[in-house]
Design a protein around this nucleic acid. Structure first.
Lengths: 205, 205
DNA sequence: CCAATTATAGAACGATCGTTCTAGACAGCT
DNA sequence: AGCTGTCTAGAACGATCGTTCTATAATTGG
């Protein structure tokens, strides 16, 4: 047998792998059964390790939760800003923003579910981090809508409410879209969601 | 002291009152902490009665849950149909449908939250009842959108997706609208949500 | 007013929860 | 090879879970 020396087998790398595997199955279980409905034993069994092993990597259940938040939701504002960076036409910016948001939601489908479901159920620290991110996202949307209004392309009304409505459509997308859909079908669906946000149900008048 | 003889003090009435009070606080706790996050003891303590008293009125925790479903969500399809009954103009029908839906959601705010949060977490029977109602609601929306399309007032695309988008806006309304808002403010908000559904973000063009 | 039913409380059950403790297996380094 | 720190398992802890049991108080119907 050949002696295989892994390039990445430093203590730090092993630690990272041990954590990653736990986070991976925790996401799955939290998304399916919620925070209170998922036990440390469930998670340990799912990775085929012991309960105390989980505690070796994470201080407690909530730290595991926060690790999930860390690797997914926290990146959302940055990705949204990146998607509109450099685009100047307001309508194009809105479209790029929505498309990127739908894309990220799709990518972190389970994570997104978790944070919508157990939004207000965590300790002060977790809750605060979650709330802060949501406020950040809202700010991005409000700014874009103000840009749209500046060029007379936004209907009258409270901009925040319009932002909430957009977010409603986008976040609800996670509930009904099929993860199994093919690429072509998915693009078509995203197009229609975007069309709804821009023009609602109406064709012309 | 005057001897007060209640008009409604039959065993059946007492039973109903005993149940009602439990359902009332269960709604509050389930909405705040979720199904798994709420214990029978929490509920018993909140009504100031004993744990076994809860079991006197409800077979188990899930039966209590189903009682909540019974008194709120189950009535939704009927109320939606009632709101559009007799209205002929398709646009007016859609508006009436959305307004009624927002109204009912507001009225059963906590109940709605519960069933969005713990949607897929219950036993077969509870889950099935919940799913059936949601399918019924979707059917109502699809039918209305078909009516709109028949007169050329609906943009192209899959009608079901448009229905989902509408439901996203409506259901998300629960997340951000303030229950404390006054009547005038609320009507104004509802107007804007409806306007978004009909025309999206765009003014004209 | 008394028997029968209903409402309630309190203790207890086994299961499971999050968490901790103890101790052995394994790795990396000298 | 032997030491040092990381990784892992298993048992155990007290708390709490949903649920049941037993018994007492309250209420109703005759």
């Amino acid at each position: 047998m050949a002696r295989v020396v892994s390039l990445k087998n430093s203590p730090a790398a092993r630690e990272a792998r041990g954590r990653e595997e736990l986070v991976e199955v925790a996401v799955e279980l939290f998304a399916r059964n919620g925070f209170a409905g998922t036990s440390i034993r469930d998670i340990a069994d799912a990775v085929g390790r012991s309960v105390s092993n989980v505690y070796h990597y994470f201080e407690n259940k909530e730290a595991l939760w926060l690790a999930i938040l860390e690797r997914s939701v926290k990146a959302l504002p940055g990705r949204l800003r990146g998607a509109i960076d450099g685009v100047s036409e307001p309508r194009t910016r809105i479209a790029a923003l929505v498309r990127e948001h739908l894309d990220v939601s799709e990518q972190y489908r389970r994570e997104s579910r978790i944070f919508f479901i157990d939004e207000e159920r965590l300790s002060a620290s977790g809750n605060k981090a979650n709330k802060r991110i949501q406020r950040e996202i809202l700010t991005i949307y409000v700014a874009e809508l103000e840009g749209l209004r500046a060029v007379g392309l936004l209907a009258d009304g409270d901009i925040r409410i319009t932002a909430f409505n957009m977010l409603g459509v986008i976040n609800w997308y996670l509930r009904w879209s099929k993860p199994s859909a093919g690429q072509a079908k998915r693009e078509q669906t995203v197009d229609q969601v975007l069309a709804f946000i821009l023009r609602g149900t109406g064709s012309e008048k």
